[in-house]
């Protein structure tokens, strides 16, 4: 055994993140359960939405099959590929003391969280792109009149879901209990954020309340990008609601995130 002096250089945030993302991507591909849920559920589930809505309902709401299914798919992608997957990832890394060990090194806290989340976030973005193309080809969805709304909505959604996942992980002791603790947000979002049931077909007062749920502005913006019937005022409202939720969840993570298992 001999201790020879090495010659590596000083790390940069980008270099550290690259190393962490590479390891996390390997882990992401090796976790078959998460992988199946993240990759296939968002592609399959939207068809259950289709069967739940009649054509007349759709027409009355000013929607077609494309503007129904695409936002639903993006919502499922955010909830399964990002939110649910990352609750599991954060809990697993914490319980295996990986987060604690990483914090003894040069990575900053924000780099650890971002790096761990990146494979899931990229999966969601790629999935959304593929879904948009798929819907355009298979469901005759037109070119979106306001694509910037979709981009803003999706980015807000990803950041928000990462932060909410980190927060949910803080209240989950094991990866098993993480499957339970992630249910409330998922159910509320399915039903109330316009994923399985478009807000357009809900009673007005209920719809007004549902607009305040975390994922609603994301779905509204994505749908609005294709329907083109979102007024500037409505779009701004959605962006502000989304920003508020994102800021709130990021703040909550800074305040309550658990880096180590409870003793």
């Amino acid at each position: 055994m001999s201790a020879v002096v090495g010659s590596g250089s000083t790390t940069t945030p980008a270099g550290r993140m690259r190393a962490l993302v590479r390891a996390e991507s390997t882990l992401f591909l090796r976790n078959k359960g998460t992988l199946v849920a993240a990759l296939f559920v968002p592609l399959v589930l939207p068809f259950s939405v289709r069967s739940a809505m009649s054509d007349t309902d759709l027409k009355e709401a000013g929607l077609n099959i494309g503007t129904l299914i695409l936002p639903a798919s993006v919502g499922f992608s955010l909830l399964f590929a990002v939110y649910a997957a990352l609750v599991g990832v954060f809990v697993a890394r914490r319980e295996e003391l990986v987060l604690k060990r990483l914090r003894t090194g040069e990575l900053r806290d924000i780099e650890i969280l971002t790096g761990s989340a990146l494979p899931a976030a990229v999966t969601c973005l790629v999935q959304s792109l593929l879904l948009a193309v798929g819907c355009a080809v298979l469901l005759d969805l037109d070119v979106p009149p306001a694509p910037q709304l979709a981009v803003i909505g999706l980015l807000l959604g990803v950041v928000m879901c990462v932060a909410l996942a980190a927060l949910t992980a803080s209240f989950s002791r094991t990866t098993e209990s993480a499957q339970v603790t992630s249910l409330p947000l998922m159910l509320v979002s399915f039903l109330g954020s316009g994923i399985t049931v478009p807000l357009e077909v809900l009673p007005d007062r209920l719809a007004t309340f549902c607009e305040l749920l975390p994922l609603t502005p994301v779905i509204t913006l994505v749908r609005g990008a294709w329907t083109g019937d979102l007024s500037g005022y409505e779009a701004l409202g959605a962006v502000l609601t989304g920003l508020a939720w994102t800021a709130l969840s990021v703040f909550a993570v800074r305040r309550w995130f658990r880096w180590e298992p409870r003793r």
Partner: peptide
């Protein structure tokens, strides 16, 4: 992974 996160890594 650790080498990528460590300055002056051997």
């Amino acid at each position: 992974m650790w080498a990528g996160c460590t300055s002056g890594a051997r």
